[in-house]
Design a protein around this nucleic acid. Structure first.
Lengths: 349, 349
DNA sequence: CGCTGTCATGATAGCGCTACCATTCGTTTT
DNA sequence: AAAACGAATGGTAGCGCTATCATGACAGCG
C-alpha cells in the first residue's frame, strides 16, 4: 500500500478522523478534471454527462483503483440496493433454493442480498427485521406470512416493498407462494383414490413448520370427507432422512394396520423409503410412501417417490422479478402470485 | 445552542431533501433530555454513560420506535459489522453448510452476512469483492484460495481480515480448511488396500471445482505409487445424483474392467449407487463406489457409502470464531487451521 | 434580438451518525 | 489547599456521497 498517497490538496482538516488514505470520488474528480458531482453522475447516470467527461472519469477510476463507498452513497441517497432476505432455516434445502432463485435474479439487477436466519423463531425474525431496516434495505423478503406483533407493526409502517414467499395468502404487501392446504388435499386425494384407507400423516415440529401443518389440514379434510380417520404422528426432530426412518418405525409400531404414510416432506419420505428397503419391506406393497417438495433424491430411489413438486427456484425468481418491477416504479398488477404445484406420481404409492 | 423550545425545532432547513419523517437519534436525545452524542453512547457503549441517562435513552427509543440508521453509523465510524461471504454455488449443499456455521456464530456476535454467489466465475468474484468492499465490510470470507489478479490486488491492499475457507494453503490472510490432496490420497489408499486395481476417478467440471481436481491429484499419486493406471472421467454437468448415474454408465462403457469408482463427491457417488441398484448391479461385488463429503444420504443408502467426512459446519464455525477473535483485536496465533477429515468406511467398497 | 427550453456542469448543503476534543464536576492525591 | 485525575457529558466537525437548486452555453423560434 502506498503511503505517500493521493490526498494532495483536498481539504486539509484541522483535527479529526484518521486521515484515510482511501481514494474518494473527489480524488477521481480531481484527476479527471471535473467536479465531484459530475464524477458521481458519470458513474451513476452515465447518459447525464458528456462523452468526454464520462471517459475521463472512468479512466481516473481505473487508474486510481477507486472503489465507490456504497455506505456513503446510501446515506446520501437513502437507497441502498440491498435486499434483506429472511429465512427460517438453511438446513432445509427448500429455502436455499428459493434464495438461489432470488439471488440470481437480484444480483443481475445489481442488488445484494443481506441474509438472515431465524431458526424458526419469530422474535429472532423481529430482531433481524429491525437490523435490516437500519440498513435502509430497498426491500425485504421473508418466508411466510406469520410474524409477531412487534414485527408486524414495524413492517406495516415501513415504506418499502415487502415480499412474503412460500405460502399463499393475505400478506402485508407482495406475496408469491403456493397453497399448502390444497397441496395436502391433493396428495390425500391421490392416496384415497389409490384405495388406501389407513393413512398416517407424519410431520416434524409442526408448530414451527406450520406450512406442513397446513398441508395436514388439507389432508385431514379429504380423509374426513371420505369418512376415514386421519391420525397424525409428530416427530420432535427437524426433518431429515434419519427422522424419516424413525417416523416409519413409529408408525409401524403405533399404527400397525397403516397402508400409506403421507410425510410432510421428501427428506422424511426418502428416509423412510430407504429404511423400508433396508428392512426388506415392500414399497408400496407393504407400505406406501408419499412426500412433498419434489427433491431430486425422490427420483433416484427405487421405487420413485410419489411427491408434490413445488417450484422453489421459480418462486425465488418470480419474487425477485416482482420486487424489481416494483422497485423500478412500475405498476404491480397483482400482489399475490400462486406458483402452484404438481403431483408427481412415482412407484412408492 | 438554545434548547429552550423543546419539540419540533430540529434543523428547519431552507430547501433540501425530503423532510424525512424518520425518527433519528436526535429525536431520541431530545425526548430523553440528553445530547445526541450521549444517546449514541447509551446505545453503543452502555457502560460509558450514567444509569439514569441510559434508562431515559432506552425509554425514549422504545416510545419513539427508533430504529438506528446503520448506514449513517457505518459511515461515521467506518465500521459496518457486515461480513461479506462469497461462495461459488448454493446448489452444492457443502457451501450452504459452511454458511450456516458462519452465520450462527457471526449473528450471535451481532454481525450480518452479505452473501454473494460467484457461480464458479472468478471475474464475478472480483465484482462481488469490489461491491462488498464498498460496503466497508468488517471482514470477508471467500471459498477457496484462487482469485483473479485484479481481485488479488484489491484484497492485498484491503486492511480488514480476509478468511479463505474450504481448502488449506498459503492464503492472503486467514485460512481454515482441509487438505484435499491428502483426502484424495486417503481414499485412494483405502481402495488399493481393499485390493482394487482398476479404479476410475469421476469428477464434474474439474476446472471449476478445482478442489475435486486436487483430490484427483492425491488419488493419482497413490495409484502411481502402486504402479497402476489412474484414469479420469470428467463429466460436463455439475455434480448431482443424475450426473452420478451418468458417470456410472459411462465408466461401465469406457472402462468395462473397472472394479471401483472414486467419485469427486457424494452426490455423484450416491447417484451412481442408486443407479447401480436400479440396474441390479451388486455394490461392491460388481463395482465398488466411494465418494467425498459425508452427506447424510450416504449413510441411508444400502450399502452405506464409503466416503470422506469433511466437517463443513465446523469449518464455518471455526472460521467465524477466528474472524471474531481478530476483529476484537485479539492476537491470532495461527493463520492456518486444518479442520481435517475422516475416512468413513461403508459397505460400498 | 429577446425569450424560452434543453443540456452539461457546478456550488451548496446536508443524509444521520460518531470521532475527537473540550468542559464540567466531584473525588483523590501530594 | 492545590493539583491531578477520572467519569460523565457535550460541541463541533466531518465520514463520502448525492439531492437540490443555480448557472452558463447554446439551439430554436417568433
Amino acid at each position: 500500500m502506498s503511503k505517500d498517497s493521493p490526498n494532495a490538496d483536498l481539504p486539509t482538516n484541522t483535527r479529526q478522523r484518521r486521515s484515510s488514505d482511501q481514494v474518494t470520488l473527489s480524488h477521481v474528480a480531481q484527476v479527471a478534471g471535473v467536479s465531484p458531482i459530475t464524477a458521481s453522475r458519470a458513474l451513476n447516470y452515465p447518459d447525464k454527462v458528456s462523452d468526454s467527461a464520462r471517459r475521463s472519469v472512468l479512466q481516473a477510476v481505473e487508474s486510481l483503483g477507486y472503489v465507490p463507498n456504497l455506505v456513503a452513497g446510501s446515506l446520501a441517497s437513502s437507497r441502498s440496493r440491498l435486499i434483506a432476505v429472511i429465512v427460517p432455516s438453511l438446513i432445509n434445502s427448500v429455502f436455499v433454493e428459493v434464495i438461489k432463485g432470488l439471488q440470481e435474479t437480484l444480483e443481475a439487477e445489481g442488488y445484494q442480498i443481506l441474509l438472515g436466519n431465524t431458526d424458526y423463531d419469530l422474535d429472532r425474525e423481529y430482531q433481524l427485521v429491525r437490523t435490516f431496516l437500519g440498513w435502509s434495505c430497498s426491500a425485504l423478503v421473508t418466508a411466510g406470512l406469520r410474524h409477531n406483533s412487534a414485527c408486524h407493526t414495524l413492517l406495516a409502517n415501513w415504506d418499502h416493498p415487502i415480499m412474503e414467499v412460500m405460502e399463499l395468502g393475505q400478506g402485508m404487501d407482495l406475496n408469491v407462494g403456493l397453497d399448502h392446504v390444497a397441496a395436502g388435499r391433493c396428495m390425500a386425494t391421490h392416496l384415497t383414490d389409490k384405495g388406501y384407507r389407513h393413512i398416517v400423516y407424519v410431520g416434524a415440529r409442526l408448530a414451527q413448520d406450520y406450512r406442513a401443518s397446513m398441508r395436514f389440514d388439507g389432508h385431514k379434510a379429504v380423509l374426513k370427507e371420505k369418512g376415514v380417520d386421519a391420525p397424525l404422528l409428530e416427530l420432535d426432530t427437524l426433518g431429515s432422512l434419519q427422522a424419516g426412518a424413525e417416523g416409519l418405525a413409529q408408525v409401524l409400531e403405533q399404527y400397525p394396520h397403516t397402508q400409506a404414510i403421507h410425510f410432510a416432506n421428501d427428506d422424511l419420505a426418502a428416509g423412510a423409503l430407504l429404511a423400508a428397503q433396508r428392512q426388506g419391506l415392500n414399497v408400496p406393497g407393504d407400505i406406501a410412501i408419499a412426500g412433498f417438495n419434489g427433491l431430486p433424491l425422490g427420483q433416484h430411489v427405487t421405487p420413485q417417490l410419489t411427491t408434490i413438486l413445488s417450484p422453489r427456484e421459480e418462486m425465488g425468481r418470480l419474487a425477485a422479478k416482482e420486487l424489481i418491477r416494483r422497485l423500478s416504479g412500475k405498476n404491480v398488477y397483482r400482489r399475490q402470485h400462486n406458483v402452484g404445484f404438481t403431483l408427481q406420481i412415482g412407484g412408492s404409492t
